[in-house]
Amino acid sequence: MIEVLIIEDDRRVAEINRRFLEKMKGFKLVAIACSGEEAKEYLEVMRPQLVLLDVCLPDISGSDLVWYIRKTYQNIDIIMMTATGETGIVQEALRGGVFDYLVKPITLDRFRQSLDKYKERMQFIHSMKVMGQEEVDYLIHRGVREELEGSHTMSLPKGIDPMTLEKVERVVLGNGESGLTAEQVGRKLGASRTTARRYLEYLVSTERLRADLAYGTIGRPERRYGMKVDSM
């Protein structure tokens, strides 16, 4: 679960954000702070992974709080949620490394999109041991994935999601030459063996992966999926 701290002085807006958050799987609200001072106390005690931060607070600006978090808690990520859209404040927030900047009034769809992308990024980071240029581009330029997928997304068969397909391929390629079974890939993704195998077989059919027949400890043959020989 991704633990979240909401920092918002308007209690009505804070309640809306809380209800939005309740609709999101994989996220848990740990506290709501109504001032900068209260926020600092919760940050020290709770150590959330993600902060939903307003710019206008009664005792400190949200921009100053961004830099306080950056200096004191390097492992805490920030999404700004504010009615302030001044260019200078947006620029400062981006320089402070915020993951996203949402301008009020915020719709549930935009809220969901932001948190889904954040969760996707965390899952992606945790699945990688070493990153190449493409992986770094994906993290820094979040729109690059859509461009890379654009050439084949329209031709994907029913039941094959481009985002999941990319994750499956990265898991296999990230394992090197040894290859993985469908069950192993499923465990790494948090998916069933059947789902993993469907995506793996599609990648084999499009010649993006190879499948070899191997024998397990009890002699039963199983398919192991790995990178193609010509891509090693």
Rank of each mutant, 00 (worst) to 15 (best):
Ile2Arg: 12
Glu3Pro: 00
Glu3Tyr: 06
Leu5Asn: 03
Leu5Ile: 01
Ile6Pro: 02
Ile7Asp: 01
Glu8Arg: 02
Asp9Thr: 05
Arg11Tyr: 08
Val13Trp: 03
Glu15Asn: 12
Glu15Ser: 10
Arg19Val: 08
Leu21Lys: 06
Glu22Tyr: 06
Lys28Cys: 04
Ala31His: 15
Ala31Asn: 14
Lys40Trp: 00
Leu43Ile: 05
Met46Ala: 13
Val51Thr: 03
Val51His: 09
Val55Gln: 14
Leu57Asn: 06
Ile60Ala: 09
Trp67Met: 08
Arg70Val: 06
Tyr73Gly: 07
Asn75Glu: 13
Met81Lys: 00
Ala83Pro: 04
Ala83Glu: 03
Gly85Lys: 04
Gly85Gln: 09
Gly85Pro: 00
Glu86Thr: 04
Gly88Gln: 12
Ile89Met: 14
Leu108Cys: 05
Asp109Lys: 12
Arg110Leu: 08
Phe111Arg: 01
Tyr118Thr: 05
Gln123His: 11
Phe124Pro: 00
Ile125Thr: 09
His126Trp: 10
Ser127Cys: 08
Met128Ile: 10
Gly132Thr: 04
Glu135Arg: 03
Glu135Met: 04
Asp137Gln: 13
Asp137Thr: 01
Tyr138Cys: 08
Ile140Trp: 12
Ile140Asn: 11
His141Arg: 14
His141Cys: 07
Glu146Ser: 07
Ser155Cys: 00
Leu156Val: 03
Pro157Met: 02
Ile160Ala: 12
Glu166Gln: 14
Glu166Phe: 13
Val168Met: 02
Val168Thr: 03
Glu169Val: 01
Arg170Trp: 01
Gly174Tyr: 02
Gly176His: 08
Ser178Gln: 11
Gly179Trp: 00
Ala182Gln: 05
Ala182Lys: 05
Leu189Val: 05
Leu189Thr: 05
Leu189Pro: 02
Arg197Asp: 11
Arg197Ser: 13
Arg198Asp: 10
Tyr199Ile: 05
Val204Met: 07
Ser205Ile: 00
Arg210Leu: 06
Ala211Lys: 10
Ala211Cys: 11
Ala214Arg: 15
Thr217Ile: 14
Pro221Thr: 10
Arg224Leu: 09
Gly226Glu: 01
Ser231Glu: 15
Ser231Cys: 08
Met232Cys: 09
Met232Glu: 11
Met232Gly: 05
